[in-house]
Amino acid sequence: MVDVSEELIRGLKKKAVTLRKHIIRMTHNAQSGHPGGSMSACDIVTALYFQVLRVDPKKPQWPDRDRFVLSKGHACPVWYAALAERGFFPVDELMTFRKINSRLQGHPELGTTPGVENAAGAEGQGLSFSVGLSLAARMDHKAWRVYCILGDGEQDVGQTWEAAMAASKYGLDNLTAFIDRNGIQQEGRTEDIMPLEPLAEKWEAFNWHVLTIDGHDFRQILAAIDEAHRTKGRPTAVIARTVKGKGVSFMENKIKYHGAATSDDELKLALAELDAQEAAV
């Protein structure tokens, strides 16, 4: 385990609550979007943007930056929230999400939003894109690393496994993939729609270094990233067990909140819960 201070963990927890509040407000304001999968990935995104990634909000195109790729593009509210909090663009702009003339599209667009590194929405393309980035970094003998978050629904997509084969063929140890294993996709439980288990064994069979963690435990997230950094000759897949809608009790594990915003009443309840969490940190 990496040695992390209480203070660091407390700071990350606090930031994650802030991001969750943004997610709830953004999707409520838009009355559309995908809060559930944004909240399940929130702690991983928080750990990356506020502890791990070498990025510079003043220079979003800095060539030696680490690359973060969101393959599950529908979870972009959490990405936009993290980028805004990290200073890539004003926090106020989050309320333009999904509105006309906004830089914050319903699914990520490359070149429009400062800090966004890929276009996603059609599932299953992000890991392949990450493989291309990782190959380029290696060709140029660069130290920057690539982190990709995939949804578990994306494990249905054939291209995900094409990418998995390519990453292990080229031994891309500068690539870390997180699988946001919240167990729910648009129409139901992943195991009902298209059974994925045994999932860790699948990734192992594709010759990845595989870790299974609690995707809401910052110590485990940071330890997994540390282990990925130390793993040579193979890419690392982190299967992060998460809860869809994590952080708001009435949204947790509810299929509905994959792609539904909160009502006005629900917004108040959700924010009250998150405020209480913030106070408790």
């Binding site: 299953g124 990782s134 291209q159 084969m165």
Partner: peptide
């Protein structure tokens, strides 16, 4: 030899890998 990537019968992956390479400054 280090600039040709053989990706097998997996054209969607091939195209996205090319895109990733291009995003990092290559002409793919």
């Amino acid at each position: 030899p280090d600039r040709l990537f053989q990706l097998g019968i997996a054209e969607p992956n091939m195209i996205s890998v090319a895109a990733g390479l291009a995003a990092a400054g290559k002409i793919a």
